Simulated scan of single mutants.
Amino acid sequence: MSQPSQAEIRNRLLRVLPKCDFALLAPHLQAMPTELRQVLITPQEPVRYLYFPESGFASITTQGSSGRVEIGLVGREGLVGASPLLLGADRTPFAHFIQGAGEVLCIDRAAFCAAVDESASLRRLLLRYVQIQLIQTAQTAFVNATYSLEVRLARWLLMCQDRTDGDELAITHEFLSLMLGAQRSSTTLAVQALEGYRLIRARRGRITVLDREALEAAADDGYGVPEAEYARLIEGA
């Protein structure tokens, strides 16, 4: 199988790598289609593969006796599975699964770790990405503790749209309530509120963003901090 060309890759993290660092990873990258709800990383099991999303996106979730809650999103801006390995661990307590089907470039753990050990610049950039993931998780905790469900929903829809092509998102109210950690009835009311403001249009299994600018205003300060840090630390590096 031919190696992927850096110019043709859609993953933003791979695209900004210096050519010498990309060359360390490229021979080991394998394209793989993904399916909705497909598990990429199982909690408390050693990470065997890492995934650079090319399209679609993955959720990072934690689960307890009261249910499952999303604590992070990873799309073509990032890498699934990097945090534990870069921080000296071999596994994570969090589940990583596909929420938007698409395609990833996967790399096995040994090849990834060998490339990181060989290049200080590659390790530095990837650790910056881990920093952004930590900021995203902290921002999620802040928003969930501070803002109404409508604001949380607006932020989440913006984050999903950032990781997709176009304005339409395939999502059910049931799954949406799971990701937001809210009752389904409350989530339905929040969707109806944003729809009433003409920010979105909801149909069975689909939500379409109608007014991106107004949706950002509805998300208030909940949206934008991790995104700004990504622009500064990754694309501005």
Rank of each mutant, 00 (worst) to 15 (best):
L79K: 01
I71C: 07
L79D: 00
G64F: 09
A101M: 10
V80R: 00
A89E: 15
G75M: 07
G64H: 12
F94D: 07
E77V: 06
L79M: 02
R109P: 06
E103Y: 05
A95Q: 13
S65W: 08
P93N: 03
G72H: 03
L86A: 02
P84D: 01
T92I: 03
T61K: 13
T61V: 11
T62Q: 15
D108T: 04
I107C: 01
L86H: 02
P84A: 01
P84E: 00
T62A: 12
G88Y: 04
D90T: 15
H96Y: 14
H96D: 02
G64Q: 08
L105E: 04
V69C: 05
A101T: 08
T62R: 14
R91D: 06
Q99N: 14
E103S: 15
I107F: 02
L73P: 15
A95S: 14
G100N: 07
I71V: 11
T92A: 03
V69D: 03
G102P: 13
A101Q: 15
E77Y: 06
R109V: 02
T62S: 09
A89C: 14
A110L: 14
I107H: 03
A95T: 12
R109H: 06
G67P: 11
S65D: 12
G88P: 08
L86W: 03
A82M: 01
G72A: 07
I98P: 12
A89F: 15
R68P: 06
F97E: 11
G100W: 07
